[in-house]
Amino acid sequence: MNLYTASSGLGKMEQLAVGDSPLHRLPPMVKLITTLVYIVAVISFPINNVSGLTPYIFYPACLMPVSGTPAKPFFARMLVALPFALLGGVSNLFILRDTAFMLGGLAVTDGLISFVSIMLKMLLTVSAVLLLAATTPFTHICRALSQLRLPGVICLQLLLTYRYIAVLIGEMITAVTAYRLRSPLRRGIHIRHIGSFLGVLLLRSMERADRVYQAMLCRGFDGTWDWVRGRRAGAASLAYAAIIIALCVLLRFFDLSEALGNLFVG
């Protein structure tokens, strides 16, 4: 992945978010709440429980096709989070070495189980967030957050941070391109130049942020923002929320894989 594709990737989700599907049409608040419930349910599983976690795949498995989210950009985004989960998971492999049970002739350690569990949790929560981002414009998510009584200032900060990341990447692209054009023989940036490079980048993006802020002031911005009300949730969206929340809660206390396993094994 290079800088150019990264910056266009940033816009990709936002582009998907203005599409149209049953999921896109749901009120942002409903999507935000169901996403939060789902994430809390997944995260609250104990680290040694993989079988209970597995059925939660229903969420991305159903919502991806319904929302028409294309697989490629979706999984590409997911790869970004992968290293962090690996980092957290791999250490467990070495710390928790007690054998949990034997599978065939192989000893399955507690470490392996928790490794799989961490990876699975990462996969599920990140896909839930990505699905929210791919079906709801960021401004609408911020608005829903403010309706959940998150102070307007914080919602606005979120929005500005989001915008600022785009600015920063834009500045970085310009700076890197200018550098490369003047040092065609070198791959990457020489270690000697990194300091001044980052310094310039910081200054430039600070100036940029300052001008963006001034431009906002010129359009009547006074540091507060009254978030316009969103649509009210209709019967269909309430039903959607009820089903998702019920499933999340049910699966949390009832181990479907184990039940199915017992059914077949007897």
Binding site: E14, P137, L160, R163, R208, R211, M216, F221
Partner: peptide
């Protein structure tokens, strides 16, 4: 502003245009 990137800051065009009136 001289640079349009300084001016436009909402992800969607219609949200950005509505930014000013919303402030009022």
């Amino acid at each position: 502003f001289q640079n349009p990137d300084d001016q436009i800051f909402m992800p969607l065009v219609k949200d950005d245009i509505a930014f000013g009136p919303a402030n009022y």
